[in-house]
Nucleic acid binder design. Structure first.
Length: 569
DNA sequence: GCCGTTTTCGGCCCGACTGTTTTCAGTCG
């Protein structure tokens, strides 16, 4: 059983406890335990086997017992008892904005409403006003909420949202009433999926800023308009919140609205221990404000080193900031080589020369062309003959460029039995080999593990491409034993890819953390199919930063000579 | 439910906003 599966059960328990009005701190204990497991780089089964589950913060005697029952027997009686008591439809109701556990349980208890549809018709007929605490406005909000639930899916890929947020920031910056501006929230933490856009502005004239905001051309409708907060829906279906604060509160508000919630909760308990208080307006000792001109000074006022947004998930970064062991995170400027790129030879849209020039212009020193191999028919994969022709073209381009080198790479299909898609006499001539699974993505876990282990043991494979094959919000990852893959990569000195394409981000940040801890090197790539795709690198780097990766963990931060010698070229 | 170098019981982050209310509960981030 995976950490994610256990985490989901704990999360459901927390929700059900909230619904029945349990002690909110008990609910939070389950939520915390859920998140602790979800974010743990340790496998829950290993933790149980070695009796270290209780070492995780927030997991005590009772939870160790319940989680052990779940993992060893596949069931948890406590969970099943709760589930028998609470209709599943109540979970759906919680997705209605402004409709929380108390209201959901009230409609169930007082009117026996158990589904969204029943709730909708009850609200339409005005029957809900009979319940204490429910009025006309509440019914209207429920109806509007159900309507917007039907229209919008809740989550969006980082790559779809970040450019949008940057456009909004650029447009608002032109408004003279705006003093400081930035996007915040999970977007700033570079989470792979985000729910909405949070924009923060400091200004002395919030009304003018709000006007400018609601008049942005791709704003579809204004949902809430206030003096400190305005919410709009964009044409793309994404919600965007703008908050306006006084200029002196901007750093504290940035810290606060960047989150994560867990990070902030932990930070405030640190503040409390120091006799201070942190909120979105500043850091306070009693009534007195401790002046902070930047986020950095906020952290310093709590005796912590500055914590980059990508680390703020309460997975140990606060402890590391306290004792000075925060990692020196990889940065986009550290990346010197653009790896895993496609050209017109397979399914890319630019030539080798165009890709090389684009990479050189962006400041990279080398480029690995990795087109598809012969089995990838739909992707116009290269036969052995076409591979040789491509090599000639790459050599021509190399002769024409100074201080830049194009490597002869391939993204070779890993076949069902783990073998690679060309005979050895071709394989051995590539400079760099990325091996990826493109067919039969959902074979049984044991079989997929064997397939990947076998590929990683192949002497000519250098990098395992997009290891889990997931497509974010679209395709589930392949199932296999990730720890076995990491272990095999470590033993054979192989590299794992962090495919930075915003649909993939594969490995994900937690896998990166696990791999790096085992000493496995990571290649941050773009999987570029055009010159423009090279700009996707920042999503890969953002994910790497979330995974605590440093320059030393990433092979394409090496310069061209170091890189060539790592792969014995 | 967790946690503790003042505590094994009594805490557990904090404030804004909203709607239904005469002083507050619920929701949200």
């Amino acid at each position: 059983m995976t950490n994610q599966e256990v985490s989901k059960v704990l999360d459901d328990i927390a929700t059900m406890l909230e619904l029945v009005g349990e002690n909110p701190f008990k609910c939070r204990a389950y939520e915390r335990a859920s998140r602790e497991l979800e974010n743990s780089i340790e496998n829950v089964e290993d933790l149980i086997e070695t009796e270290r589950l209780g070492d995780l913060p927030g997991i005590g005697k009772a939870l160790v017992e319940k989680i052990t029952e779940l993992v060893t027997s596949g069931r948890m009686s406590y969970y099943e008892e709760l589930r028998d008591k609470i209709p599943g439809g109540l979970f759906d109701m919680l997705k209605i904005p402004g409709f929380g556990p108390k209201k959901a349980y009230a409609v169930y208890r007082d009117m026996d409403i158990t589904t969204l549809d029943d709730l909708e018709s009850a609200a339409q007929s005005g029957r809900l006003s009979g319940i204490s605490g429910f009025g006309k406005k509440t019914e209207e909000r429920i109806l509007a909420g159900i309507q917007s639930l039907k229209e919008r899916v809740g989550l969006h890929r980082l790559g779809d949202v970040l450019p949008c947020a940057e456009m909004i920031v650029d447009q608002l910056r032109a408004c003279p009433a705006v003093r400081r501006i930035s996007y915040a929230g999970s977007l700033r933490r570079m989470k792979e999926v985000v729910k909405d856009i949070d924009i923060l502005v400091s200004s002395d004239d919030s009304d003018t800023v709000m006007d400018a905001f609601t008049r942005i051309e791709f704003v579809r409708e204004t949902v809430v308009r206030g003096t400190t907060k305005t919410s709009v829906a964009l044409d793309s279906g994404i919600n965007c919140d703008l908050r306006v604060v006084a200029n002196q509160s901007f750093p504290a508000a940035m810290q606060y609205f960047t989150g994560s919630k867990d990070h902030n909760v932990h930070l405030r308990s640190i503040a409390r221990d120091l006799g201070c208080k942190v909120n979105e307006y500043g850091v306070f000792r009693g009534e007195a404000v401790i002046p902070c001109a930047s986020e950095q000074e906020i952290y310093e006022s709590l005796n912590l080193k500055y914590i980059p947004p990508e680390l703020r998930e309460d997975t140990g970064e606060i402890g590391a900031a306290a004792n000075g062991t925060l990692p020196d995170l990889i940065d986009t400027t550290d990346i010197l080589g653009m790896l895993h790129c496609h050209t017109r030879w397979s399914d890319g849209s630019n030539s080798v020369a165009e890709m090389a020039e684009a990479a050189r212009k962006r400041g990279y020193r080398y480029l690995a062309i990795c087109d598809h191999s012969q089995s990838s028919h739909v992707a116009n994969g290269l036969s052995a003959d076409r591979v040789r022709e491509q090599w000639e073209e790459i050599e021509t381009v190399n002769r024409s460029m100074e201080d830049f080198v194009v490597l002869k790479g391939i993204e070779v299909d890993i076949k069902n039995d783990g073998s690679l898609d060309y005979p050895d006499e071709i394989m051995e001539q590539f400079d760099i080999v990325v091996g990826s699974v493109h067919q039969n993505l959902h074979m049984p876990s044991a079989q997929m593990t064997e397939r990947l282990v076998s590929a990683l043991s192949h002497p000519h494979l250098d990098i395992l491409g997009h290891p889990t094959n997931r497509l974010i919000l679209s395709r589930e990852p392949s199932r296999f034993d990730m720890d076995a893959i990491i272990e095999t990569a470590a033993q054979h000195g192989k590299v794992l890819e962090l495919n930075g394409h915003p649909w993939r981000l594969d490995l994900n940040w937690l896998h990166c953390k696990r791999a790096a801890r085992r000493g496995v090197k990571i290649a941050i790539t773009t999987d570029a199919h055009s010159t423009a795709d090279m700009d996707l690198l920042r999503y890969g780097v953002g994910t790497a930063r979330r995974g605590w990766l440093t320059k030393g963990d990433v092979v394409n931060s090496l310069n061209a000579d170091e890189f060539r010698s790592l792969f014995s070229l």
